[in-house]
């Protein structure tokens, strides 16, 4: 049943200067599902995420968004439907928080200014930052900036949201506020792929955990199952190490 997949990644390969980072990755995502990608650094998780919206164009393989193939020629339109949350937020520094959440709606989707403002305000409320609309990014904490960047992605009404280690650049005391927003989105039925080391999030919010290593998917399954009885030794070892530190 590939038809009802929001995101369908098929046999994606990517090499950098002869080094194969992704060696044929495939997975699918149904509406409302949250999948968490885990694995040691260098396993290709972030590259995979960036291949999905062609920030890093894949060498081989195909990617479908709600049945439509993501291609170089339709990439801007596709990206408008794929929300992306970066590790280091990448809020537009010269724009206020409100304008950060407005600008892509207006410039990319052609939403009317007042409608975009209203939507932006709603999304800011949703991430708990309704009172920060007129602040500039540099005036916010890392956790607040990341929540704004989530609001920016949400305001585009994306088919799917991709999170690339959204808490890795944050001080430990600030990760909680971001994780809570992500958990709320997952329970609201947002369709999401999350690269993270936050195992509490994986445990509570993921429908499926995908364990990657050396450019391959080693194992995937419901988090409870993987945490308690991963079939693969390396998956088990990795999750144990993460669990101890997390």
């Amino acid at each position: 049943m590939t038809d009802d997949l929001v995101l369908d990644v098929r046999d994606v390969k990517k090499s950098y200067e002869g080094l194969e980072v992704l060696k044929g990755i495939g997975f699918g995502l149904r509406r409302g599902e949250t999948k968490v990608l885990v694995g040691p650094s260098g396993s290709g998780k972030s590259t995979l995420l960036r291949c999905i919206n062609h920030l890093t164009p894949p060498d081989e393989g195909r990617i479908f968004l709600s049945g439509e193939e993501v291609l170089e020629k339709n990439i801007d339109a596709m990206r408008a439907r794929i929300g992306f949350v970066f590790q280091d937020f990448n809020l537009f520094s010269h724009l206020t928080v409100l304008d950060n959440v407005r600008i892509c709606q207006v410039k990319v989707k052609g939403v009317a200014a007042d409608v975009a403002t209203e939507r932006a305000q709603q999304e800011l409320e949703r991430v708990g930052l309704g009172d920060k609309a007129s602040a500039y990014p540099a005036e916010l904490s890392g956790g607040q900036q990341q929540r704004v960047s989530i609001a920016r992605a949400l305001a585009m009404d994306p088919d799917v949201l991709l999170f690339d280690e959204p808490t890795s650049a944050l001080d430990p005391e600030l990760t909680g506020e971001v994780v809570r927003v992500m958990q709320k989105l997952a329970s609201d039925g947002m369709t999401m792929v999350v690269v993270t080391h936050e195992m509490s999030f994986a445990r509570q919010a993921a429908d499926e955990l995908i364990f990657m290593e050396n450019g391959y998917i080693i194992e995937q399954g419901p988090p409870q199952q993987l945490f308690s009885s991963a079939a693969n030794d390396r998956t088990r070892a990795f999750l144990n190490v993460i669990a101890e530190h997390g």
């Binding site: 920030l55 801007d76 809020l91 520094s93 410039k107």
Partner: peptide
């Protein structure tokens, strides 16, 4: 201007020209 600004603009669907016009240029000019 940090590279991530361009990447974020492209990631939300802006064309290269839109990203230059709306994101890079206003920061570079300041």
């Amino acid at each position: 201007v940090p590279r991530g600004q361009m990447v974020a603009a492209r990631a939300c669907g802006m064309s290269k020209w839109q990203a230059i016009r709306h994101i890079m240029l206003p920061q570079a000019l300041r």
